[in-house]
Design a protein around this nucleic acid. Structure first.
Lengths: 242, 242
DNA sequence: CGAGTCTTTGATGCATATCAAGCTTAGTGG
DNA sequence: CCACTAAGCTTGATATGCATCAAAGACTCG
């Protein structure tokens, strides 16, 4: 059950057998969330932080007139964080049926000042840095990429993230979002997202098969996404990306 | 010289006389940056972090084809932070002539484990939380607000931020950005920004006078910006914004 | 099999980009 | 002090990306 969490963290920094054991015993209090049910994330430092086990969560901002923007996603193995913002109704909301797990014990272990689990703490730190990177990337997507580029870019990012937790393979990944949810992530209308996805399929950049997105030509997709060549082996670590 | 820094931090949490003294003596190593000269921000934890003293800095992402997006601004009194992101050429760049100051001493004082300066540490924490909030708001602006709303929203945010450091008054603020820079913040073309500013002027929501933007009707501007009523007295603190 | 939810399609309009040119301002050197 | 220049602002014309509305297919699930 904690497999995606282990793999995700280990992808940022190698973990000892001890540390994997800490993950297995440290997570507690499994909760299931139905699609659409609001979920208030914890806003204090470590108490009550949760990790997604299965399904996806999104951090949603609601405008007064009903417009919505999903500002961040939390995939299996990733942390739910981020506090409230003034004058904005924001919640975490499950996108589909999602399970989360209390991670406070795990986090306090990793953050113990005497550092008995240095690999865990390091992996943690890098994972959070990656999360900040994603926020920046998201703003860039929304600000300067066309709908076409933006969609490709998001798909590439989701692929990389699911690779880290062992949920995707090199040429495909699960994707169980409705086009409406996608449109709220991408800042587009649902109808337009539909047309963009059709175009990407016509261009043989993506394909659908049984709830999965298939990438026939990942390199070309990355180019369309406005990204450089794929990161070299090992370059996935944030510290390697000077 | 450190006045904006003192005021900005004090706006987040009251500071003792001692702590103000720490700020005055803690800042060191003044640097001047010419408009457009790239500036690599520090990426380690505390060493070499800098604070803007005068002028504005922007965190800019460059795309391969020349498009640019400014992802965050640092105003006087605010910190330069944020590391590099993979596959993206990103730098801090002065928007006009800017001066920054080394803040490592100041920061290590505030973060001393024995906490001799609790007000400073608290102000610091809240300032950083506000900075994260701004990133989220920026994504929301770019994703779901129209050009008109987006521009109004940015102006309101800049006004609030400059109020905190004593650089703006209730009804006006300095603004020395070219429309092209504005367009790179807002994710719009420079021509369109020009037309939006004209419209805002026609609607008597803003006016220009001698390098300053004047707000004849702040409340109406906030409404146009898609924001709720202005925060009540004291509600500027992030902790008050549940 | 029916009912809702999702996807797809077409028609239309608006928001915003792009291109090109004129204008205004401030700075610069003769 | 006055061209001269360059940067920024403004304007108009045109093109296009994307939103919106409406309705018709496709799934999925009870």
């Amino acid at each position: 059950m904690t497999r995606p969490i282990e793999l995700k963290l280990a992808s940022f920094h190698p973990l000892s057998q001890d540390e994997i054991e800490v993950i297995r015993t440290g997570v507690a209090d499994l909760q299931t969330h139905q699609s659409g049910a609001d979920f208030r994330p914890p806003d204090d430092a470590a108490r009550g932080r949760r990790i997604v086990v299965s399904g996806w969560m999104g951090w949603v901002a609601h405008l007064l007139d009903g417009r919505r923007q999903i500002l961040a996603l939390a995939l299996p193995g990733e942390l739910l964080e981020g506090a409230a913002v003034a004058n904005l109704h924001m919640v975490y909301s499950p996108l589909g049926v999602t399970q989360t797990v209390d991670a406070s014990r795990l986090i306090s272990q990793a953050e113990r000042p005497d550092r008995p689990y240095p690999g865990l703490a390091e992996a943690w730190t890098r994972a959070r840095r990656a999360s900040a990177d994603r926020a920046v990337r998201h703003a860039l997507r929304l600000g300067r990429l066309s709908g076409h580029e933006r969609t490709a870019n998001l798909l590439v990012e989701l692929h990389e993230r699911q690779l880290r937790s062992g949920l995707a393979d090199e040429r495909s990944m699960p994707l169980r979002l409705t086009q409406e949810v996608l449109s709220d992530i991408l800042g587009l209308s649902a109808v337009h997202v539909n047309r963009i996805l059709q175009q990407l399929r016509r261009e043989d950049l993506i394909a659908y098969r049984a709830g999965r997105v298939v990438f026939p030509d990942p390199i070309r997709l990355r180019r369309v996404a406005g990204l450089l060549e794929p990161p070299a082996q090992g370059a996935l670590c944030p510290t390697d990306q000077t």
